[in-house]
Structure formats: structure tokens, C-alpha cells
Design a protein around this nucleic acid. Structure first.
Length: 345
DNA sequence: AAGTCGGGGAG
DNA sequence: CTCCCAGACTT
């Protein structure tokens, strides 16, 4: 049994065909879209995708761009290693493959940031060669159609879903099929309130037959997020510029620029003197607020400070930047920094 | 197998 | 608040 014929018939009448990455299809355009869409909703990606493709229309442009320029285009989108890997992969494609994308899952998966599902999407959509995908939408559709119990993060559950994905993927019209099953998951077969009444797969759906749609797919086991605290130091100079630091290449906000951070409870003036070698005076403290990541909460205490003397020599130009609000540098900013800069402006 | 990595939309 | 999104990678 395969769901492909009914899915394709539904797709012809109801599928999405006007998404930005569905126009002028090329491996590069499909690849960029698939990376942006990892763990990120379509409506969030669209404006980023337009800006990115306008700034860097070819893989050669991306390979030649500076890391700061790419991070700037990614600011606010999250999972910033995607942007760094995207640039690295572009350089590999240009230097090792002569600017041509591999057209098979095995070689595409060797590119940093491209896993099995993303490779399958590129192969099926850009090259129209048979390859299965298994993203969040497909997991939900297949878990329901086959009543696959358990959380897909568990290896055995993922393995069964991959088998089902391979089983249903057709030889013909594979690009349309890939788009169709994602569209079904994103529209009718949604996480809450699925529209089973108009679903083309309702007669194939074991979860619907069981009357337990809401049980599929299995939920992620909840865990309590730890809470971390920090002060963000908004240090202004006499030119109305703000001091930013570049994050190291690994860890949270890697490659982005942030305000200097002092431990919660520490004296920010002493921190500036000891760690930055600058003398500052306190202007005001803003209300603490919570920024939440996938794996912890960060309670941020914003502090406004003013530089008392001219910048010292200890500050390293590679790691420090005076950010001018009226002529902002094209660098990547962590979301809380962008938010605080907005409030300062 | 479990942890790391972001930010936002929807309920 | 909770839950999860066109996941990949490291430990």
C-alpha cells in the first residue's frame, strides 16, 4: 500500500506552489531553503530567505562572503551553526566540486549541516531523483497513518518512520510527492485540530480508525529547564556607540556579537575595570527579563553604563566593536542584544 | 541515548 | 506558561 497516488491528487488541487523557494528551482535555492527551514516555521523563514537570496544569489557569492556578513543575514533566525555550516559547505562545493552540487544523498550528507532528511529533500526536489525525507511534518503524517507509537526521538521509532517514509516515496513525481506530504502535515494533518474530514488519507489512517489521532506522534518527555542568570552591560562612549564582544566559535550564540556579560550579582564597574580594563559609571538598571532557549532559561539584568575615559589598549580589535546605532555594522547579533539595542534607539 | 543549539508562533 | 517547528551534530 502506498499513499502516493491520493497524496499527489490532493497536492495538484490544494498544495502550496507559491513559496519563494518553489520559484526558479535550483540546487542552491533548495539547499538554502532546507537549511533555513530546519526546526523553523515557513512563515518565519520567508523574509530571511528573500534577504539572503538577494544578498547572496549564487553559491559562489556565499562562498566568498565574510562570516560576519552571513551571520548578519541570519540574525534572529536561531541555530547559528546552520549559517556557519552553510558558508563552509559553499566553500567546499566551490573548491572541491567546481560549484556543482552532488545529486545523491550519500555525498550531500557529507556537507556540514546536511543530514539524511535535508539531503533527501534536496535530491527529490532539486534533482527529481527518488529520495525519502523525514521532517516534523512527515513524522506526524506517517505516525498517524500507521499508528506508530512512541516519541520519534527514540531510535527505534525513528527507524520505523524512516522505513515507512521509504516505502511511500514514489519513483515518479517524487518532487511533488515530497512537497505534498509536507504540505499535508503543515495544513490538514496539523499538530492540533487536524482536518480529518477533508483529508485525502482518511481511509488509510490507522490513528483515525482507532479514534486516537491526538496520541500520534508520541510526545517528547518533558524536562525542567535550568535557570541561568547574567547581567548584560550596555556600555556607551562619548560618540553614542555601544561596546559589543564577539562570541567564540562554539557554544551559545557562536559567531555573534553581544554586550559584555557579568555574573548576576557581580559589580559591573569592577567587572569592566578587571576584565575590560575600562573605567565606567553606572547610569541605570533596567527590569530583569527572561530569555528562553531550548535547554535553559536565561534571566537577563540589563545595565546601562557610560565610559569615563577614552578606550584603553587592552581591548582586542578582533573581539570588540563599538556599535553605532545610526550606522550599524553588518554583523550578527544575539536576539536579546538586538532587542536591547532597539530599546536604546 | 542524551545533550547542545534559537527564536518565535500558536494555544 | 507549554509544545514544537522542512534537524544536525557532539558527547
Amino acid at each position: 500500500m502506498t499513499i502516493a497516488p491520493r497524496l499527489l491528487e490532493w497536492f495538484d488541487r490544494n498544495g502550496r506552489k507559491n513559496l519563494p523557494w518553489q520559484q526558479d528551482i535550483s540546487p542552491y535555492r533548495v539547499w538554502v531553503s532546507e537549511i533555513m527551514l530546519q526546526q523553523t516555521q515557513v512563515q518565519t523563514v520567508i523574509p530571511y530567505y528573500h534577504r539572503f537570496m538577494q544578498a547572496l544569489p549564487t553559491v559562489q557569492d556565499l562562498a566568498a562572503a565574510s562570516e560576519d556578513a552571513v551571520m548578519h543575514l541570519w540574525t534572529g533566525l536561531g541555530y547559528y551553526s546552520r549559517a556557519r555550516n552553510l558558508r563552509r559547505s559553499a566553500q567546499i562545493i566551490c573548491s572541491e566540486f567546481g560549484g556543482e552540487f552532488p545529486n545523491d544523498v550519500e555525498r550531500l550528507s557529507e556537507l556540514p549541516g546536511v543530514g539524511r532528511s535535508t539531503a533527501g529533500a534536496i535530491v527529490s526536489i532539486a534533482f527529481q531523483r527518488r529520495a525519502a525525507i523525514l521532517d516534523g511534518n512527515v513524522k506526524r503524517v506517517l505516525a498517524r497513518v500507521h499508528a506508530v507509537d512512541g516519541y520519534p526521538g527514540v531510535t527505534s521509532v525513528a527507524r520505523e518512520l524512516w522505513e515507512r517514509a521509504e516505502q511511500h516515496t514514489p519513483e515518479v513525481r517524487v518532487a511533488d510527492y515530497t512537497q505534498a506530504i509536507m504540505d499535508l502535515g503543515a495544513t490538514l494533518c496539523s499538530r492540533t485540530k487536524p482536518a480529518c474530514g477533508i483529508c485525502p488519507l482518511v481511509d488509510d489512517c490507522q490513528a483515525h480508525e482507532l479514534g486516537t489521532i491526538a496520541q500520534f506522534p508520541g510526545k517528547k518527555p518533558p524536562k525542567v529547564l535550568p535557570v541561568k542568570r547574567t547581567q548584560m552591560l550596555m556600555i556607551g562612549n562619548s560618540a553614542q556607540e555601544l561596546l559589543l564582544e564577539k562570541r567564540p566559535p562554539t557554544g551559545i550564540w557562536s559567531g555573534l556579537w553581544i554586550f559584555p556579560q557579568a555574573d548576576a550579582g557581580a559589580d559591573p564597574i569592577a567587572y569592566c575595570s578587571d576584565q575590560l580594563g575600562i573605567e565606567v559609571e553606572l547610569l541605570e538598571r533596567w527590569r530583569e527579563y527572561r530569555h528562553t532557549f531550548s535547554h535553559y532559561h536565561l534571566d537577563i539584568e540589563p545595565v546601562r553604563l557610560r565610559l569615563k575615559h577614552a578606550p584603553p589598549t587592552v581591548m582586542e580589535p578582533e573581539r570588540h566593536l563599538w556599535y553605532n546605532l545610526r550606522a550599524p555594522a553588518a554583523v550578527g547579533l544575539a536576539a536579546p542584544v538586538a532587542k536591547l539595542l532597539e530599546k536604546l534607539a
